[in-house]
Computed example of a mutant assay.
Amino acid sequence: MYSLTVNDHVMIAHSLPNEFFGPAQGMHGATLAVEATFSRAELDEHAVVLDIGAATEMLDEALSPLRYANLDEHPDFAGRLSTTEATAEYIGSRLEDALADQPDVGITVTLTENPRAKVSYTVPGRP
Rank of each mutant, 00 (worst) to 15 (best):
N18H: 15
F20V: 14
F20R: 14
F21S: 10
G22R: 13
P23E: 15
A24W: 06
Q25E: 15
G26M: 10
G26C: 11
M27I: 10
M27D: 09
H28I: 04
H28Q: 05
H28W: 05
A30T: 05
A30F: 00
A30V: 01
T31Y: 03
L32Q: 00
V34F: 09
V34E: 05
A36M: 03
T37S: 12
S39I: 07
S39G: 13
A41Y: 10
A41G: 15
L43M: 07
D44H: 03
D44T: 02
E45Y: 14
A47V: 09
V48M: 06
V49H: 00
V49G: 02
V49R: 00
V49S: 03
L50T: 05
L50I: 05
D51M: 07
D51K: 06
I52E: 10
I52N: 10
I52Y: 09
G53V: 10
A54C: 07
A54I: 11
A55R: 02
A55H: 01
T56Y: 01
E57G: 08
M58G: 03
M58L: 10
L59K: 01
L59I: 09
D60L: 03
D60C: 01
E61W: 07
A62T: 00
P65R: 04
P65I: 03
L66M: 00
R67Q: 08
Y68F: 09
Y68E: 14
A69E: 11
A69P: 01
N70C: 08
P75M: 12
D76P: 08
F77H: 13
A78M: 11
L81N: 15
S82E: 14
T84N: 06
A86S: 13
A86E: 07
T87E: 02
T87H: 02
A88H: 04
A88D: 03
I91L: 03
S93P: 01
E96P: 04
E96T: 04
E96Q: 14
D97Q: 13
L99E: 06
L99G: 13
A100I: 12
A100L: 09
A100M: 11
D101L: 09
Q102C: 05
Q102I: 04
D104G: 14
D104F: 07
V105Y: 00
G106P: 01
G106Y: 07
G106S: 09
T108K: 10
V109K: 06
T112A: 11
N114E: 09
R116A: 15
A117P: 06
K118W: 12
V119K: 06
